[in-house]
Simulated assay, not measured.
Amino acid sequence: MGSMSDTGQLWWALGYCGFMMLLAFIIKRYPPKKINPFYGYRTKRSMKNPKTWEAANKYAAQLMLQFCLYSFLIPAVTYLLIPGWNLLITVIGNTILILLVIFYTEKHLSNLFDENGDLI
């Protein structure tokens, strides 16, 4: 994959995972206080009311932090198996993990709230 060395790809992939971990930590440490269009876990369901907003952001931040920890395994394993594709596979893997955060958070919200955003 290009002219980047295998070690270079490993460092970039680890740096990417570290950056995503930093974002997850910031979101967990400084959750958005009010529903807004800029910062936080923003979906139609999460923005129904303050209760759905708080539940979604708390759950998504915790899940993202856990998934970011797991994401460090991607470059480590890829470096051993196919090091020339490390950075690409790491970015794809992290994208899948972020999509899983959305999937699981929406499932979590649907278990707690009805379609109007009221507690079940």
Score class of each variant (00 low, 15 high):
Ile92Trp: 11
Pro75Trp: 04
Glu106Gly: 08
Ile89Pro: 00
Leu100His: 05
Thr90Ile: 03
Trp85Leu: 04
Val77Gly: 05
Val77Ser: 07
Leu81His: 02
Ile98Met: 11
Asn86Met: 01
Gly93Thr: 09
Tyr104Ala: 11
Leu87Val: 11
Asn86Lys: 06
Lys107Val: 01
Lys107Gln: 01
Tyr79Leu: 07
Leu100Pro: 07
Trp85Tyr: 05
Ile89Thr: 02
Ile82Asn: 13
Ile96Ser: 03
Leu100Ile: 08
Ile92Ser: 14
Gly93Tyr: 12
Val91Trp: 13
Thr90Val: 02
Tyr79Trp: 01
Leu99Glu: 11
Leu109Gly: 10
Tyr104Asn: 15
Leu87Lys: 14
Tyr79Glu: 01
Trp85Ile: 08
Ile98Gly: 00
Leu109Lys: 06
His108Cys: 02
Ile89Val: 07
Thr95Ser: 14
Lys107Ile: 10
Thr78Met: 14
Ala76Phe: 04
Ile82Lys: 11
Ala76Ile: 15
Leu87Asp: 07
Gly93Met: 11
Thr95Ile: 10
Glu106Leu: 13
Thr90Pro: 01
Ile98Arg: 00
Gly93Ala: 10
Val101Leu: 04
Ala76Trp: 07
Tyr79Gln: 07
Ile82Gly: 14
Ile92Ala: 15
Leu88Asn: 10
Trp85Phe: 05
Pro83Arg: 08
Leu88Arg: 09
Pro75His: 05
Leu81Arg: 01
Ile82Pro: 08
Lys107Cys: 02
Val91Asn: 10
His108Arg: 07
Asn94Val: 05
Val91Ile: 15
Tyr79Arg: 01
Pro75Ala: 05
Ala76Thr: 12
Leu99Cys: 05
Ile96Tyr: 12
Lys107Gly: 01
Thr95Trp: 02
Leu99Arg: 03
Thr105Val: 01
Leu100Val: 07
Pro83Asp: 02
Tyr104His: 15
Tyr104Pro: 12
Thr90Lys: 04
Leu80Ser: 13
Thr95Asn: 02
Leu97Ile: 09
Leu81Val: 03
Asn94Met: 12
Tyr104Phe: 15
Glu106Lys: 09
Leu88Val: 04
Gly93Cys: 14
Leu81Trp: 00
Trp85Cys: 03
Val101Pro: 00
Trp85Gln: 03
Tyr104Arg: 15
Gly84Cys: 06
Ala76Leu: 15
Trp85Gly: 05
Leu97Val: 10
Pro83Glu: 12
Thr105Glu: 06
Leu99Ser: 00
Trp85Pro: 03
Leu80Cys: 14
Thr105Gln: 01
Asn94Ser: 08
Pro75Lys: 06
Tyr104Ser: 12
His108Asp: 08
Asn86Arg: 09
Ile102Val: 14
Trp85Asn: 01
His108Tyr: 13
Tyr104Asp: 13
Ile82Gln: 08
Ile98Leu: 09
Pro75Met: 06
His108Met: 05
Trp85Asp: 05
Asn94Asp: 08
Lys107Asp: 03
Pro83Val: 11
Gly93Lys: 12
Glu106Thr: 07
Leu88Glu: 13
Ile98Val: 09
Pro83Trp: 00
Leu97Arg: 00
Leu87Gln: 05
Asn94Leu: 03
Thr78Phe: 06
Ile82Ser: 15
Ile96Asp: 11
Tyr79Val: 00
Leu97Glu: 09
Pro75Gln: 00
Leu99Gly: 12
Leu97His: 08
Thr95Lys: 13
Asn86Asp: 05
